[in-house]
């Protein structure tokens, strides 16, 4: 299954070109030009990885990250930043972002980070599944009672 990526940046041309390049690398890409629009899309669909620009008009990258982590804690976020906003990207890491990349970014590096982020999401999902199975095995009655 293709890795589902949401690319969020207010620079339309940047989003269009990077989307095309990532599609050629076999990702399932959705593009978004604002934090507000991205949050709507994330509400409706499960993305594996969100690539999020730090500095955007309206809801900025950090606020968007907070909302994403509230709505979909397992979705991994990679922050994109110009050099003036590295501190903000580091703040993002503290808030649960998977990693950050400086603009202009190296596509191979981005490709690697997306794959690593997807792997971490898969690990978390597997851990949650295993914990649920373990709960069922240790006390099957509790599962029936829950129902």
């Amino acid at each position: 299954m293709k890795i589902r990526v949401l690319l969020v940046d207010d620079e339309e041309e940047f989003v269009r070109t990077l989307s095309e390049r990532l599609t050629l690398r076999d990702y399932d890409i959705t593009a978004s030009l604002s934090g507000d629009d991205a949050l709507q899309k994330i509400k409706q669909y499960n993305y594996d990885v969100v690539i999020l620009d730090v500095a955007m008009p309206g809801i900025g990258g950090i606020d968007a990250l907070r909302e994403i982590k509230k709505m979909k804690p397992l979705t991994e976020v990679i922050m994109l930043t110009g050099h003036g906003t590295v501190e903000t990207a580091i703040e993002g890491m503290k808030l649960g972002a998977f990693d950050f990349l400086m603009k202009p970014c190296n596509t191979e590096e981005l490709d690697t980070k997306i794959k690593k982020a997807r792997a971490r999401k898969a690990e978390h999902e597997e851990r949650i599944r295993a914990a649920k199975v373990s709960d069922i095995i240790s006390s099957p009655r509790s599962v029936l009672e829950d129902d």
């Binding site: 620079e11 041309e13 070109t17 990077l18 110009g82 050099h83 003036g84 603009k103 202009p104 970014c105």
Partner: peptide, 10 residues
């Protein structure tokens, strides 16, 4: 930086 990022992607 934004302009350079676009040129880079192109």
């Amino acid at each position: 930086k934004n302009v350079l990022a676009i040129i880079n992607e192109n």
